[in-house]
Amino acid sequence: MDTLILQFLNGLDKGSAYALIALGLTLIFGTLGVVNFAHGALFMIGGFCAVTLQKILMISSVTLDPTKLNFLGKPTEVKTPYVEVFFGKDVGAFIVDWSVPLAIFFAIPIMIGVGYVMERGLIKHFYKRAHADQILVTFGLAIVLQEVIKYFFGANPIPTPAPEAFRGSVDFGVWLGFAPDLIIYPAWRLVYFIFSLVIIGAVFAFLQFTTFGMVVRAGMADRETVGLLGIDIDRRFTVMFGIAAAVAGLAGVMYSPISSPNYHMGMDFLVLSFVVVVVGGMGSLPGAVAAGFLLGVLQSFASLNQVKALLPGIDQIVIYLIAIIILLIRPRGLMGRKGVMED
C-alpha cells in the first residue's frame, strides 16, 4: 500500500509537469490553431530564468581580508554578494537562498515578452500556411533557441538548488496515518505539485471568470463571429500566447531544482507533452490537464517492480502505448471536440 501511495505521488508529480506544458500547448493550439514545436524550448528558457537570477544574485564584491593568509602568504579573497551588501547579511542570504521561488517574478515578464515577440515576429506570418509549415518553422525555432542558450550557458546542466527549507524530505505517511518513515517524499516535489495546481487553477479561473477570458473562449469557439462583433480578437490571442509562454516558463522555473536545467531539457519534455495533448484531445484544456495527470500516474505505476517483473521495460513505453491505443479507439482523444484539426 505504501509503495502504491508513493508511486501515486510520483505520478502526480510527473503528471503536473506534463499537465503544465500540455496546458500551454493547448492554449496556443486552441486559440491560434498553431502547433508549437518550440514550446519545450519555452519550458527550458523558464529553467534558465532561474539560473540567470541565481547568477545575478551571486554577483559579488571581492574584498581582501588581510587577517587571514592563504598558503602563498597573500590575503584571502572574500566574496560577498552585493545583495548581502545592500540588504544586510541575513536578508541577503535569505534572498540568495530563495532565488528559485523569486525567479517566478523574474520569469513572468521575460516569458510574456518572449512569447509576444515570438507570436508577433514569426508565428503571425504562418496562420495562413499549412500545418506542416507551422510545425517546421517552430521546430527550427526550437533548435535556434536551444543553441542560443547552449552558447550562453554551456552544455552542462547548471544546478539550481531549492531553498534550504525545502531541500529535505517530508514524512508524508504520517499525515495519512501511516507509521513514520514509511512514505518519505522530497519536499520540493510536493511544492511543485501544489504550485502547478495553483497555476492550472489560475489559468482556468482567468478564462472562466474574467471578461477577457470570456472573449478568448468565444474566440476559440468561433473566431469570425467574435471578430464581426468588433472585438480585436488577434490582439487577445497574442496575449494568450504570452500567457501560455509564461505557464511553460513557470513550469521550467519550478522544475529547475528537480533536475538541473540543461539546454535540451525542453526537447525531452516536448515529445511527451505532445502525446499528452493528443491523448487529452486537441484543443481541450481540461483534457490536457486530465491526460497529463493520468499519463504521469500510469507511468509511475508501470515502473513498480511487480509490474516490471511481469512486463519488462513497460515503464519506458507505457505512455506511447496508451497514446496509440487511445488514438485508435477514440480518435479525438479523451475530451476532444468534433471539428478540431480533422483535415
Binding site: V35, V271, V278, I317, Y320, A323, I324, M341
Partner: peptide, 19 residues
C-alpha cells in the same frame, strides 16, 4: 492525418528508441 499523423509517428519512433 495532418498533425495527428506527425505526432503518432513521433510517439512511435520515440517508443522504438526507448525499446
Amino acid at each position: 492525418s495532418g498533425i495527428y499523423f506527425s505526432i503518432l509517428t513521433l510517439a512511435m519512433a520515440q517508443m522504438m528508441y526507448n525499446l
